[in-house]
Design a protein around this nucleic acid. Sequence first.
DNA 1: TATTGTTATACTCTATAACTATA
DNA 2: TATAGTTATAGAGTATAACAATA
Lengths: 127, 127
Amino acid sequence: MQGLLQSSRGRFLAVASEFELSPPQVLALKALDPERPVPMSELACALHCDNSNVTGIVDRLEDRGLVERRGAPHDRRVKMLAVTQAGTEVRERLLERLRDAPPALAALSPEDQRALCDIMRRALGRE
Amino acid sequence: MQGLLQSSRGRFLAVASEFELSPPQVLALKALDPERPVPMSELACALHCDNSNVTGIVDRLEDRGLVERRGAPHDRRVKMLAVTQAGTEVRERLLERLRDAPPALAALSPEDQRALCDIMRRALGRE
DNA sequence: TATTGTTATACTCTATAACTATA
DNA sequence: TATAGTTATAGAGTATAACAATA
């Protein structure tokens, strides 16, 4: 299990540098929803970090044109984060690369792979 | 699969802060071997970062008395990293906490857990 | 000449605390 | 008074390039 997590870290870092994004930027883009803007605070929660950190991370994603701050109608204090068209495209390619099976798992027999998927589905109640 | 990795990140960060270590410090302590000192460059490789970063990370682990730099007999350029007695104790407790099964997996049936372990063992050729 | 580890530099992430504007 | 997001600050991680000692 530990070994799998370790190898996943390497793949994650490789994909991040492939897209010229920092690790937190990748996590942010992954956590955001192109179909439903979310408040900054929700992203902070997803990234396990303070609100104040999200300001900078979003600043840089916004500079790259991948994300957009919008006002919230119901509460003028909150800013909603929307994924732009360009951001959605990058995000799609990013998720695709991250979804690629780790080499260790890809090498398993088809039966093992199917069994693994079934177990994971039960563990996570659908991903 | 992605969901599992995501939850693992949260647990990892929680354990790191529990031990008052930064994430890279945890990875370093985890990668080092109390029974076999390794060169700085090997740690850099394990952490997927440049040699120059390891200097600072090891500095701080050394300040806390968890790790020790030693000269290498065969090549006076290299420095070997040894885990101190205190470091070994912290490392043991750390690994124990990290080994705790993720809640999602702990909730699986005993049969699923056994099957999962078998598959993982085949995937990683023994962890 | 090439390599190991360090130093210098610049940028990003991180937490904390103080601040602004809302509520 | 409390909350969402920003700004200020300080410490840590990161890559790059330049450097010392050694090979």
